[in-house]
Amino acid sequence: MTLKIVRRLLPDWGTTYGPAGDGPFPAVMVLHGSEGGWSGWSHRNAVMLAAHGFLAFPFTYSRSGNVWNAGNISDVPLDRTAEALDALRAFAPVKNDSVGLFGVSRGAEHALLVTCLMQRDGVGTLPDALAVHATSDVICGGFDARAYRDVGDPGWTAWDTARRAWTWQGKSDDLLPTTPIPVEKYAGPVFLSHGKKDTLWSWKMTERLAARLRSQGREPELHLYEDQDHVPDSEGENVFFDQLIGFFQRHLP
């Protein structure tokens, strides 16, 4: 038997998943949500992309954490994400230096925000295509999985929305919670999707992002799923991945 999907180490950064063979392959960096990098969801999403011809890199940005705990999204240095994106672009199996960025939930917020900051400050090379699912349209507060418990649990604490999630070039003063994410500054292709029965982030946030892009003469690829929650069900996810993969196939040469 010959493996159809193989892992390749991106030196100093982590593992990637891609088709067997020498390539080259278009690449996608995958950003996890508040479940953290150790949970495996971003790796599973990377394998889905790898099965369709992409070299996918699930980048773990959550701080601390282990296989039992998601870690936290607090004072995460977005500069490191920009560096990881450049490292992936320079990786030998990557085709035409072509790299997309894909995030879900807090990873979607992360993807939008780091792209906008890279654009604003001329840092690194921007992703060639940007895809986000179930995102917020504003910066959200820091998150610590250790405190995320059912109300009434002895370890439960209220989410401190003033806690800062992100830093950029060592600072967070302009990355305060509730600050709008200026996605309209990014000129590349954008994929936006959201379930209209999302009980965590309102789908209206994604609709507002689309409106901002259109106000600048840009037309995002927008998908709103009538019967889907924050995490799609099996049928909904099949539809989502079909659309996501089609988007990256069209925009990553």
Rank of each mutant, 00 (worst) to 15 (best):
G155A: 13
I181Y: 01
T199K: 15
V76S: 00
H52I: 05
E219M: 07
E35D: 07
G33V: 01
G236N: 03
I73P: 00
S39N: 06
M48I: 14
E109R: 02
T115W: 08
G195C: 04
R208S: 11
I181T: 09
W156G: 00
H133L: 03
R106T: 15
A87I: 09
A87T: 07
P26L: 03
K171Y: 09
R164T: 11
A70Q: 10
A108P: 11
W13M: 00
L101R: 06
A82P: 03
G188W: 05
L9F: 11
D233W: 11
A187K: 10
L113E: 04
G246D: 15
F241E: 06
S215G: 15
V47L: 13
I5A: 08
G217Q: 01
W159K: 14
D153A: 11
I181G: 03
F143A: 00
H133T: 14
I73W: 09
P177I: 14
H110L: 03
R106H: 08
F57V: 11
L88G: 09
G236W: 03
G217C: 02
E237W: 13
E83M: 05
A27E: 10
G18H: 07
V114E: 02
M205C: 14
F59H: 12
P189T: 13
M1E: 14
F54Y: 12
A87K: 10
L55K: 05
E207C: 01
E207P: 01
Y186M: 06
K171M: 13
